[in-house]
Nucleic acid binder design. Sequence first.
RNA 1: GGGCCUGUAGCUCAGUUGGUUAGAGCAUGCGCUUGAUAAGCGCAGGGUCAUAGGUUCGAGUCCUAUCAGGCCCA
Length: 948
Amino acid sequence: MSTSYKDTLNLPRTDFPMKANLVAREPELLKYWEETDIYGQIQAAREDAPLFVLHDGPPFANGDVHMGTALNKILKDTVVKSKTMAGFKAPYLPGWDCHGLPIEFKVVKQDRGLSPVEVRRRSEELARKFIDVQRRQFKRLGVFGDWEHPYLTLAPAYEAEVLRAFGRLVDKGLVYQSKKPVYWSTGARTALAEAEVEYQEEDAPAIYVKFLLSSGPLAGKASIVIWTTTPWTLPANLAVAVNPGFGYRAQAYQNPHTGARETLVLANALAEEFCRATGYTLEAPTDADDDRSGAFLGTELEGWIYQHPFLGREGRVILGEFVTMDAGTGCVHIAPGHGNEDYVVGRRYGLPVLSPVDDDGRYTEECGVPELVGQYVFDANPRIIEMLRSSGALAFAGTLHHTYPHCWRSKVPIIFRAVEQFFIRMDDLRPEALRAVDDVRWLPPWGRNRIYGTVENRPDWCISRQRTWGVPLPAFYDEAGQPILRRDWIDQVADVVAEHGTNVWFDPLDQTIANALKLPPGTTRRNDTLDVWIDSGVSWLAVTDKMLGVTGQADLYLEATDQHRGWFQSSLIMSVALEGRSPYKECLTHGFVVDAVTRKKESKSDQTHNDPSAAAPAEGQTAATPKAKEKEKTYAKPRTAEHFVALHGADVVRLWVASVNHTDEVPFGEQMFTRLSETYRRLRNTLRILLGNTADFDLAQHTVSPEEFTFVDRWIMHRLQEVVATCREAYAAFEFHRVYHTLNQFCAVDLSSLYVDITKDRMYCDRPDSPRRRATQTVMHHVFDALCRLLAPLCPFTSEEAWNYSNHGTSVHLELFPARDERHVEIGLGAGVDELLGLRALISQAVEAARQEKKVGNALEAEVTLHVADEGLRARLAALDAELEEFFILSDLKITEGAEGAEAPTTVSLRPTSYKRCERCWRHRFAVGTMADHPTLCERCADVVAGQ
RNA sequence: GGGCCUGUAGCUCAGUUGGUUAGAGCAUGCGCUUGAUAAGCGCAGGGUCAUAGGUUCGAGUCCUAUCAGGCCCA
């Protein structure tokens, strides 16, 4: 009997599967998109729409796509998809950063002694291999774009643009040549990058040296003491640095060898250590010593002059924040040609960059000591110590066991040596660059302060690299070895490169360039390359202008926070130099991926760009610290996007991106996916029930006009307008987690536990074409439609799949977002429903209590009485009439005045209903038992069954 | 060590110009349902808003310090 009545119901019907099986289904959708050229269709459909250009920051073509890279790409895609659906033409041209050390290093490590051209050939091969890998992985994530025509920094046309841009910088007088210290391998006769340096343990001389002061209050009376492990750099000593904030003291000591009394200046904090190490002892002050003038703050020492211990020149005391009290004397020997900090502080004080050492590590004439010229610097250490001893400048000579950088190839100890480099003059650009910073809208707003600080403090930009895998630095050299930078020549090189690629530069026998430029005989070129940040720093020019045909700024750049100092800055500087403005209007940053449990960083490979120093795990000195070791450990974790896509599907990975506030660090962990899968299922099942409930609904035939909507229908349409407005705003503000939470909330609460639950009775039990059932179907159709569109940028696969089940025929990604429809907005409706939900909660609690007492099994078996003291509320409830029972999903609801002595203005009482249960709709109704033909049915169900 | 940030229930997020018992979803526990069923519904528990001071009639919200974490420098 009951089963036969079940057959008279309109239960939901749909083929849209409950089980997503994304891992299998997504590739089918990808194929569908590929075959129908969805990206091309979208661009064509937005032909005349206003333009929105998100310019892709090129990831480094090296390795798999990790979660950090995936985060970045998914965010970009969500921006592009949401802008498209907001009515913009939003082309997306992906790119790759191809040049640079990490690739070259891989190639060179595999096979040594390759010619530059061969290194470049293999580097390109490697880069292209990873471009293919990453392209496949990005596409698998559902990212739409012009994947068949990406921009590559290794493309000849792109390289030519880089060269032309450089030529314009030269033309503007922004490029100059100067010396700068680099890691230098005397064994390989080449500059090294950080990654090419190995740290090995060894014993080094560690000496204390006295520099006699020749000016200041202690002139001629005292010496300032330095400590160094590289005596060979002393011929290049030009200064002594002290920390401005620390205390120093001039005190009398007894020399342990001569017994003489000497006044020495060193840091207070290290005087004791000095005595312990050297055997010097502190002497009691005598009348001759003016003890009150013996103590100094570091700043007071600035400008004092001292006599170089074995050269006929003087040096001066300068200030350096980098001076620590870890070791030594707190007074640091400065040779600007032999150390990076030395170089930086030396520039600040206008010191020359003295580096009297040749390619083989032998002293040149410039060292000033004839007997040292031609000697290998490390061999000269004993001789220098001897010179110091004989001149009385040596306080102590010992040895130190430490780790020291060595060449990874030739294994010889490396030296810091100044070589000629090219620079971009920052001071000429800075004011304009800072102004440009304030023309950009930074998201989040503190990004402005970050980049402002880096631009403000950035020293001149060293743009030359002694590398092979890059765009050649188009400088020529005359017979005397003097560099020639000419824009007309550079432009001609660019023309040659556009046609032949850059290899013609690196093949020493190739005459293409010489012939094309008609170079004077004796003119030579070298193998220096341009800093890769120049490559990517002009992408706005090469891509936005040349490839997309868009003149003007990109609307948006979107990268991780490390790019404030990286790509955002290099692009800004290049654009300011060439165009006098920022290349982007808005700049959005996201955080790094961190482990959800430990809050520690996930992987070092998340970087979008190739920062050579960060490209490989730190080794040597820094790796000795526990923190660095930890970093190294996390580095090895298999966190590829492919891994998680294969496990959960791309839409769930994308849901992860959508669920978090990406402006902070982005938490990530396996457990998060369990929860996200739950959310995903909720979204999917909501779409499914809407589809199931509208299976017999034909939009053209069955649409019901809003005037005929019932109360719940009006309410959910009202809610939908709020959801639409919130989501559109959140998308526009790039706050995708607000979209995620809004949609999740809407599906879980408003739809699933309220609207769909409430309307089940009419959907299943009414006549198929009852007006209120058709009204609800009309509403559900609208809700489904809006939900699919709003969800499309977050879950492109699932929304497309669902969209296809609703007979639309086309792709959801060609559609626009729903617009907020004011006709469905009803002031006060929300508050009214909130009031009802409050009562609903009271009823549920009462039912729950009755259930525990075994009075009733469920709400439909109860007679519920609402005791309402407030007359206005009673009137509002009465106005809803039968819809109230439906809203509360009750069989038998009565409303009376407030009960005597009630604790609250509204209370609920409850007992088993006296009505019998309708066998078809399961509600307990007064009429059950009174229907002659159907004694077990209520009047509505009897009527429906009779009509069939 | 410096610069720029972050820190609200187990998880992800809301908390409007400082103003009633700090909210939601998920997860957890206990039930109901078996007509969204590898689904659906209800109820319940769970937070000294990182910590410590301060300003205020009143602070998750403002200030200071500390701790933890991130990026970039050193």
